[in-house]
């Protein structure tokens, strides 16, 4: 059974239909890269998966949890899904360690000692253990994004959603963030990424999904998809970004 299963997902903002029926299954351990022009609905789709946007129609199942677009408690929603944002969104008034430990302590009521052990573990994983007591403003963009990844990992999600996580970074800082994601992918973390890094999509993902005008226009394994696009739209898109 697929870990994430999306059926006939629709979402409109007022009169504008952004998602026009998305079907997608993601297996555990799979790395899925979603590409497409801005406005194609890829970020909205990602945000529906953790209900930052509630969908109008269709079903989403993640592990044993069904999302039907109705209100759910954030605590429930965060059980399976973590998210990393384009703009990091670290809590500026808290240290790196506090950023990572806050949610496990106040949402899951886990004990402090265990949480701190986990926090050190995940920060070590992203290579920033020595920044435990630093504030976000003292870190580079790349470091902040790695802390944001660690913060999401501390909640032990089954799926990690990444919304253009390198788009706000200076070019020389992109690599360090991608390397962390690559390591996560190797460890078997299920990743769904909206990305503009075509090379990364090509090298790391198991599957690339091309979205166009609110629908999945074409998908497949990265090698064939990039080398031999079937549709004119994807051909044009690849030509415009490479």
């Amino acid at each position: 059974m697929a870990l994430v299963s999306v059926n006939d997902l629709h979402k409109s903002f007022g009169d504008l239909e952004v998602l026009k029926g998305i079907d997608l299954d993601v297996e555990a351990g799979e790395v899925v890269a979603i590409i497409g022009r801005s406005g194609s609905g890829k970020s909205t789709f990602l945000r529906c998966l953790n209900q930052l946007e509630r969908h109008d129609k269709g079903t989403i199942r993640i592990a044993d949890q069904y999302l039907d677009g109705k209100a759910m408690s954030p605590g429930e929603l965060s059980k399976n899904v973590g998210m990393v944002f384009q703009s990091f969104n670290l809590f500026p008034h808290k240290t790196v360690g506090e950023n990572v430990m806050l949610a496990p302590v106040i949402v899951r009521q886990e004990d402090k000692a265990k949480t701190e052990r986990v926090a050190r573990e995940v920060l070590d994983k992203v290579g920033l253990l020595e920044k435990f007591d630093a504030y976000p403003a003292q870190l580079s963009g790349g470091q902040q994004q790695r802390v944001a990844i660690a913060r999401a990992l501390a909640m032990n999600p089954k799926v990690l959603l990444c919304d253009e996580v390198t788009s706000a970074l200076d070019p020389e800082l992109v690599g360090e963030v991608l390397r962390v994601l690559e390591a996560l992918a190797r460890e078997g973390m299920t990743l769904i990424l909206v990305t503009h890094e075509m090379k990364f999509a090509q090298d790391v993902s198991n599957r690339v999904v091309f979205m166009h005008q609110g629908r999945i226009h074409e998908q497949g394994d990265p090698q064939t998809l990039f080398k031999d696009p079937k549709t004119a739209e994807l051909r044009q898109f690849i030509a415009s970004v490479l």
Partner: peptide, 10 residues
């Protein structure tokens, strides 16, 4: 708000 919401905070 979004970051705290996806981390499970009400």
């Amino acid at each position: 708000w979004q970051a705290s919401r996806v981390l499970g905070m009400n």
